[in-house]
Deep mutational scan, measured.
Amino acid sequence: MATDAALRRLLRLHRTEIAVAVDSAFPLLHALADHDVVPEDKFQETLHLKEKEGCPQAFHALLSWLLTQDSTAILDFWRVLFKDYNLERYGRLQPILDSFPKDVDLSQPRKGRKPPAVPKALVPPPRLPTKRKASEEARAAAPAALTPRGTASPGSQLKAKPPKKPESSAEQQRLPLGNGIQTMSASVQRAVAMSSGDVPGARGAVEGILIQQVFESGGSKKCIQVGGEFYTPSKFEDSGSGKNKARSSSGPKPLVRAKGAQGAAPGGGEARLGQQGSVPAPLALPSDPQLHQKNEDECAVCRDGGELICCDGCPRAFHLACLSPPLREIPSGTWRCSSCLQATVQEVQPRAEEPRPQEPPVETPLPPGLRSAGEEVRGPPGEPLAGMDTTLVYKHLPAPPSAAPLPGLDSSALHPLLCVGPEGQQNLAPGARCGVCGDGTDVLRCTHCAAAFHWRCHFPAGTSRPGTGLRCRSCSGDVTPAPVEGVLAPSPARLAPGPAKDDTASHEPALH
């Protein structure tokens, strides 16, 4: 009773807030009518008042009428009001819900409408889902798969039609296919003929059939049928067999079959498995989609049935006599038709004709302190090069084509190399640097090759510096006499390219 009084008091307290929050009759008014909170006449009256005075006034009048009803109607109103779709449509209802007392429970059932309790003993237990329907569909599909699609060729003596089998029958139906081979029951999904010589313990000319048996419980189990008994694959494991010639990621696949039913060829011909030897223990289905393919039931050349050999690369099948050149017997292992072999060759040939990528240039590290003349020119003028003790990398590039010797140069053309002071002394051009340390401070000019250098860098042994005729380390061993002091540049003949010694390969005349 306390809860009923509290709900009535809360409705009177929030009546105006609810009326202002509800700006549309749908969905709240319609939901109240659906849950029998508002009768039909009051529903029509509220809609009429909404058209006349507006939605807030109409709902305020409806809530005032609701306060005169019993506690069950008020409880049902609060339940409908706080439904998710009403809270989404009328956003101003959320503060009312947040301020609702926590001790007021809106989930209690309506009085007088409590459903009768059902004894637990009368409640049926839930049924577990079964796979009976899938099993029945598999039974119905198996006879259809064994139905012949056409008439065999005159040369083929193997013609068999499976008798119709009602689904209610649980007995196995067997077809006489000759040579002791028996087909599987209607619940078998796949059958492959297997030679009895590969099964340990088999006697006589009995041949087993590799099947997948579907049981009534819905589970499946792969086994071997020899005669009327089934054997699990673990009985046929043979770890010492060295003649297993397995197909790549293979499961067994029928390579020879008669049109209309699988079996042995007439005249004692023995149908073979995809792999010879003992049956392997793992009978998992292969991951290669080509091995799941269903080959055609007629020859791809003459479009006739009979004894066919199936290609492992495509769905086509052929007569042995229709092949070019014809085959006398079934080859062992994987067999592919000429079209598949030709496609494989065409895929391999473009790969062989692809040009080989060019090898990157060989990189040879230079000892610290040495650099090529090109690196000396590329440096920024007026700045010493940083990191001189790091190992430089010199790339061996292809030799350029031989060019004509340089033409003779006048001494005026070499004027930018040297600057003559007032006393006739050779001065260095701006930006000249030593080729060893890279520093341009207090550098000297070689009178023979006009290269800038430090005496301490080229002659670290402490050799005394002569007063005139300074030469760098590369030119100090040259027998050519030094030019007379005061000459602007060496003779043009000295600039012609010539053979250089091994220790002077990195010091070429550089223009500054």
Rank of each mutant, 00 (worst) to 15 (best):
A2S: 13
D4G: 02
R9M: 05
L10A: 01
L13T: 04
D23G: 02
A25Q: 02
F26V: 01
F26T: 04
P27R: 02
L28G: 03
L29C: 01
H30Y: 13
A31N: 00
D34W: 00
D34S: 00
D36I: 02
D41T: 07
Q44P: 01
L47K: 00
K52G: 04
G54W: 02
F59M: 06
H60W: 04
A61Y: 01
W65N: 03
D76V: 07
D84T: 06
N86R: 01
N86P: 02
L87S: 01
L87Y: 01
L87T: 01
E88A: 12
R89M: 00
R89P: 00
Y90C: 02
G91S: 12
R92Q: 04
Q94Y: 03
Q94I: 12
P95K: 03
L97H: 15
L97T: 01
D98W: 00
R113M: 05
K114Q: 03
P116V: 08
A117N: 07
A117W: 14
V118T: 06
P119E: 14
K120I: 13
V123I: 12
P126V: 02
P126M: 02
P126W: 02
T130V: 07
T130P: 14
R132C: 01
A134Q: 11
E136Q: 15
E136T: 07
E137G: 05
P143W: 12
A145P: 08
L146G: 03
R149E: 10
A152N: 04
G155S: 05
G155C: 05
Q157R: 05
A160F: 11
P163I: 11
K164G: 15
K165I: 15
P166Y: 13
E167T: 06
S168E: 05
S169W: 15
A170D: 07
E171K: 06
N179E: 12
Q182T: 15
Q182L: 02
M184E: 00
S185Q: 07
V188Y: 15
Q189Y: 02
R190G: 05
A191C: 11
A193P: 04
S195E: 08
Q212H: 15
Q213W: 00
S217K: 04
G218C: 08
G219Q: 02
S220E: 12
K221W: 03
K222Q: 11
C223T: 12
V226S: 04
T232E: 11
T232A: 09
K235W: 12
K235I: 05
K235N: 04
S239M: 15
G240Y: 00
N244A: 03
K245G: 07
S249D: 02
P254G: 03
R257E: 12
R257C: 01
G260L: 14
Q262V: 06
A264S: 12
A264W: 15
A264Y: 01
P266K: 12
G267C: 11
G268Q: 04
G268T: 06
G269T: 15
G269R: 12
R272E: 11
L273P: 11
L273V: 10
